[in-house]
């Protein structure tokens, strides 16, 4: 068997002296460097007390601008591991939110969900610590409210009223037409009796 241990070869006196000299000299050179750092102020910081600045582009826990979101599923489709799930009931133009969750057991913070968003409403935040005692809690709901927002409810109500009024008007119109057809040449009577 071929051995590659150099120390088994004989050492000449010249090499012997060279080894002693090199050993001493390079050790002292190394100790000079480490000794210089020994007297310098450390560069680390005391973490929980002081923290490094987190850059704007940091890819942390998502946050959602729920008002803008239109439940188009573009982010969920872009996700390589299908960790985004969303569900909303559509009332005309308004959305009644049921859920919008990111499963952080799976999420690998690749930011691919952010780019395809047509409304630019899902972002990655600067929060990185997300600790729970139970795995199921890692499925994080991004919604700030469930159901509909107050504005949306007002808008929906307005829209419904408008719709109802429209429907009522239509109905009344139809009824009037019918009445007209039934009574022949009698003039139309509007239904405000109060």
């Amino acid at each position: 068997m071929k051995t590659t241990i150099s120390a088994r070869e004989l050492t000449t006196p010249r090499e012997w002296v060279q080894n002693v000299w090199d050993g001493l000299f390079t050790t002292l050179a190394g100790m000079r460097i480490t000794g210089r750092y020994l007297l310098r102020k450390p560069i680390t910081i005391q973490y929980p007390d002081e923290r490094m600045p987190i850059p704007d582009r940091y890819r942390g826990i998502h946050y959602l601008e729920q008002e803008k979101c239109i439940n188009c599923l573009a982010c969920a489709r872009a996700c390589p591991i299908d960790c985004i799930e969303m569900d909303a009931i559509r009332h005309g133009k308004e959305l009644e939110w049921v859920s919008f969750s990111v499963d952080y057991q799976k999420c690998m913070f690749c930011e691919l969900c952010v780019y395809p968003c047509p409304k630019d409403c899902i972002h990655m935040g600067t929060e990185f610590a997300f600790v729970t005692e139970d795995r199921s809690e890692l499925k994080h709901d991004l919604l700030s409210f469930k159901g509909m927002s107050r504005d949306a409810r007002v808008r929906k109500k307005e829209a419904e009223e408008k719709k109802a009024a429209k429907a009522a008007a239509k109905e009344a119109k139809a009824a009037a037409k019918e009445a007209q057809a039934a009574s022949g040449d009698q003039p139309k009577e509007e239904g405000d009796d109060g």
Binding site: T4, S6, D22, G23, T26, T27, A29, G30, I33
Partner: peptide
């Protein structure tokens, strides 16, 4: 330069790595 002086030319380091695993 510091890395070089501290480790690469250190005699022990050289003896541990030179002629080994050729």
């Amino acid at each position: 330069q510091e890395y070089y002086d501290l480790l690469m030319v250190n005699h022990i380091f050289v003896k541990r790595t030179a002629d080994i695993g050729v």
